[in-house]
Design a protein around this nucleic acid. Sequence first.
DNA 1: TTGTACGCGTTATCAT
DNA 2: ATGATAACGCGTACAA
Lengths: 341, 341
Amino acid sequence: MGRRDGSRRSGAGVPVTIGLVAATAGVSRATVSRVFNGNPSVAPELAERVRATAAELGYAPSPVARSLALGRTGVIAMLVPDLGNPTFQGVLNGLTRAASDQGYRLLVADSQEDLDEEAVLAVEARRRCDGLVLCAPRMPTERLRELAPKLRPLVLVNRELPDADVPSVTIDFEVGIRDLVAHLRGLGHRRIAYLAGPDTSMSNQIRVRALQVAVAGTVEVVELACGVSFADGHAAADHVIDHDVTAVIAYNDLVAFGALSRLHELGVRVPAQISIVGFDDIPFARYTTPALTTASVPIGDVGPGAWSRLWALMNDGAPEADLRLRPRLEVRGSTGPAPTA
Amino acid sequence: MGRRDGSRRSGAGVPVTIGLVAATAGVSRATVSRVFNGNPSVAPELAERVRATAAELGYAPSPVARSLALGRTGVIAMLVPDLGNPTFQGVLNGLTRAASDQGYRLLVADSQEDLDEEAVLAVEARRRCDGLVLCAPRMPTERLRELAPKLRPLVLVNRELPDADVPSVTIDFEVGIRDLVAHLRGLGHRRIAYLAGPDTSMSNQIRVRALQVAVAGTVEVVELACGVSFADGHAAADHVIDHDVTAVIAYNDLVAFGALSRLHELGVRVPAQISIVGFDDIPFARYTTPALTTASVPIGDVGPGAWSRLWALMNDGAPEADLRLRPRLEVRGSTGPAPTA
DNA sequence: TTGTACGCGTTATCAT
DNA sequence: ATGATAACGCGTACAA
């Protein structure tokens, strides 16, 4: 070893290990170990003495050493493509809390949308922990499929891997889009603009496909390149009015906001002249003027759902069924009857 | 050990350890170790053979075992009081990216505002890692001071610990408030409402104190209980108009939005009748109508600043100076001259 | 009930 | 340049 003397850093005193406690208390290391693991086969008074000297010395078991000895770390990892994306805050929050209920901690890794790095990161993160929650929307399916065995116990977020025995938690975008379209069609809209997210984005592709299925020829859809942010929606609104549509489906709430804001500036009345819907139902979607009709995504359920599946995998080993979270149509003020031309 | 046979879980094959690779390749473990650590004192052809069998067996060094042997984990931890708070997304994002540049991963823990748990969590998180970034706004100073030695290498976020040799990264709320007040005073405002955050919140207390200092008797301040969200601001706006003020300083941008929205509903013109300012400069503060004047907080700099200090501590040991991030006054459309009564 | 001794998977020292 | 071996700190069969 590099530090035969047992010192950690210059200036640090002798390391207070289980051995030191044992020696000081005049017992064996096994006894100390038993005390700290609540093993009842230790004489109460002895246990107390051990606890006392341990406290005196400020001893606490080393998680790293325990991990090695036990073969489990008490940590799970989640790999996300972009920590900057607000969506993940809700997921990580839910995951952290759910896991902490069972005494598990969370390691978070960010692939920064780098596909090559992603696979390496996933494997590395997994090896450091007892399980992995993976969100890798861009990774090719075959790549994921060959990677999966190395990552087990593994739970997927926002994508499924059929016939690979990997549980997943997904959002049912199809249902969300379908309800949105049905709502608009019911209001008489027959020509709708879709403000698209990045076309490299998987969730945009899903929305586009779902849109085609949902309209089923009964409604005309004009797809407009846009983006994911307020600014993108703001800019796209100018193009919207060129296309003679009566309603707009935005990639997400932020985009819908941007469009709403721009239309307001342009003097276009919502929903009298144009109806707008978003997707997500972020906290203040209800407070825009007019309040935003949207597909409310139960993002807070993703983390707990993922944890429950990971937990099952790490124990019984019997994988739970996939969880497909359904957005709920939230009708507010930004949608109304199509204007009669 | 509980698993003398070396198996991890039933169904898993023999574990592929450094020993297996060594045996298979017909060399010693030391050699394999050297190869994987890029030690040049290995014959090129031998190294190649080792690499080959390792690849064949699918071997990768165990991070846990390495951590134990090396005395370092390659992981740092950050403890936050509430992962649900959007502020932390920017911090965690910056921290993760900065740390990953040096090959470090991030463990995130959430104390959920639980003061007792917080201390325990901090110590536990720290022991699992090589360093800790701590954000514990509510922890009593004495408690923190006695805890600090156990947490080193330690960096504090959003609070300082004088004379304790613990570097910190903070936001200079005083400067932000001061600039905001100066701006409003310059526009002729003499009676201002402050929409307060939770009074248990440290950052609210700082704002209140800073406000008192900034106005220095030249401006009258009416403090109104409010909160942190859009909804809180929305509700508080009704009280604002009862107090005959010409300007409003909101606890943060979200609150400012809420107030803005409500005032719009009430037919109060901003900034003609009332000016409003926020704090933070969240992404679409520039897109509200009117765009929000605010104190722009460089939240993205917190993570990197914390990492740089932690990194210094983990190496040279020479602590870097505290980083005090100054918000920048961002004048937009929500503020204007005070109406002449 | 307590102690002895080995193993977890790796790195590093020392000898060859 | 390579190998044998002692650590790292802990948990637990097994013996006592």
